[in-house]
């Protein structure tokens, strides 16, 4: 085994991604901290939101002045959309503002939990796929919905680990494992990660990638946490590929008995 990361790319809809850690760009102190954290994370996919520009401050800077779209894959999301109509509209605006057909589709069902409205999600995904979008849906840890999203043509599915920004870690590892077994497109665990071990665990379960924002941006030292997450995702991926030993109730000696006095 040598340089694993360059030989273990993540492939989605024919696009090759080097890093299995994807990061959001929200909640940072400023654009410079955003830039440094993303750099430390090693991510090559970064998510962004689409919003009205500030036209009153003509000197306001643009996020893309700090995150070079030539260096990073910009993945616009439909964060804050609570209806199919809004999610479709924002996806179209994102495509017009950007350079690609990629969209991280979110149709939020409830303000308090920010859980996805999975019925609306499937409906919006169908519309967008018909329009040529590459739809990466943010969904619940529901294996049936994940399956449906794959069936309608989503080239990856993004189930949550826990509510967005909650830092609770993986709340339903068994559902996630079922999704990873049954859904034959890449699974990106999105939202709910709190610290490095959560990310490592997701990868050990067999996730193809992990997407996070708050766990990094909200840490006391976001740049250090971005580095920790980078190692965690790599470590979890390697452990998954290496194949862990089975759990046993009793000890198995690792030193030979032969040769003892």
């Amino acid at each position: 085994m040598s340089n694993y990361s360059s030989k273990d790319p993540l492939i989605i809809a024919g696009r090759e991604f080097r890093s299995r850690l994807w990061v959001g760009t929200g909640k940072y102190k400023n654009f410079e901290e955003t830039r440094l954290a993303i750099e430390a994370s090693g991510a090559d996919v970064v998510t962004v939101a689409v919003r009205r520009v500030n036209i009153t401050d003509k000197n306001s800077e643009n996020l893309l002045d700090y995150i070079d779209p030539k260096k990073y894959t910009i993945l616009p999301n439909t964060a804050g959309c609570y209806t199919v109509e809004d999610a479709v509209r924002y996806s179209r605006l994102a495509r017009a503002a950007g350079v690609s057909d990629l969209v991280k589709l979110e149709v939020i069902g409830d303000e308090r939990t920010l859980f996805p409205d999975t019925a609306g999600l499937i409906e919006a995904a169908k519309i967008l796929i018909a329009e040529g979008f590459i739809v990466l849906p943010y969904t619940n840890d529901d294996p049936i919905v994940a399956q449906k999203l794959m069936d309608i043509g989503c080239p990856a599915v993004m189930p949550l680990a826990a509510p967005i920004g909650s830092g609770l870690g993986i709340r339903n590892p068994y559902n996630l494992k079922i999704i990873m077994e049954t859904v034959k497109v890449p699974i990106i665990v999105d939202a709910g990660v709190g610290t490095a071990s959560d990310a490592a665990l997701a990868m050990e379960y067999g996730a193809d990638a992990v997407l996070m924002n708050t766990a990094i941006a909200g840490a006391k030292d976001p740049i250090m946490m971005a580095t920790a997450m980078r190692y965690a995702v790599d470590a979890g991926r390697l452990a998954f590929k290496a194949g862990r030993i089975p759990r046993k109730l009793y000890a198995t000696a690792s030193s030979p008995i032969e040769g003892m006095l």
Partner: peptide, 12 residues
Amino acid sequence: ILSFIGGGSPQP
């Protein structure tokens, strides 16, 4: 007129 801003997870 819209543009990309920092975001990752949906905000309320």
